[in-house]
Amino acid sequence: MNLSSPRSVSRRDAVKWILGAAATVSALDFEAFGLPGLPTGIGTDPNLHKKIIPWERILTAEEMKTVTALCDVIIPADERSPSASAVGVPDFVNEWVSAPYPQQVGDREAIRAGLAWIEKESAARFNKSFSELAEAEKQQICDDICSAARAKPEHKKGAEFFSRMRNLVAGGFYTTPEGWKDLGYIGNTPMAEFKGPPPEVLKHLGLA
């Protein structure tokens, strides 16, 4: 959950809207994980100009192959933007699930279990590793787990994993310059004046 996004209201609410509205990365119950100040975390007074990741990345090379393949199944390249793996999202997934905080530890367990399940499924259905499957084969597995609402009972756990993975990959991808460009986010740049919406936006909103 990014609590530091530009804030029209308060951070508190931003979080809640993200939780409620935009299906965040594993909307786990924070409260269960209320353990402050873990020693290997970023600390309560980090240098905000430096990105220092104090923990080791723990996914194995095999797991990373599966993560990379999944990243690109979820966000492949198209005419507008590159694939998730082309902008470093697999490494971000590793950074995330390796973090020592309770929420991330929870994600780690769920995602490692999910990766193992995907591999088992690939082997059972196609006798290959997931990353070696043809696109149509990957989709055959992912179609079974892409929707929690539609998933069969035996795929409910898989669907939970896929949703969590999709949220992580989306969060990782849409925070890159390429992701911003894809969405049409063009802020974070100084302006002498804020002029409000241009005419085409007013028209779009029926306010012109």
Binding site: S8, A22, A23, T24, A170, G171, Y174, L183, Y185, N188
Partner: peptide, 16 residues
């Protein structure tokens, strides 16, 4: 109130 085209952060812009 707030919303709109804010800086994309660690969330999924297209919820399930």
């Amino acid at each position: 109130f707030g919303g709109g085209r804010r800086m994309p952060g660690m969330n999924n812009p297209a919820p399930d």
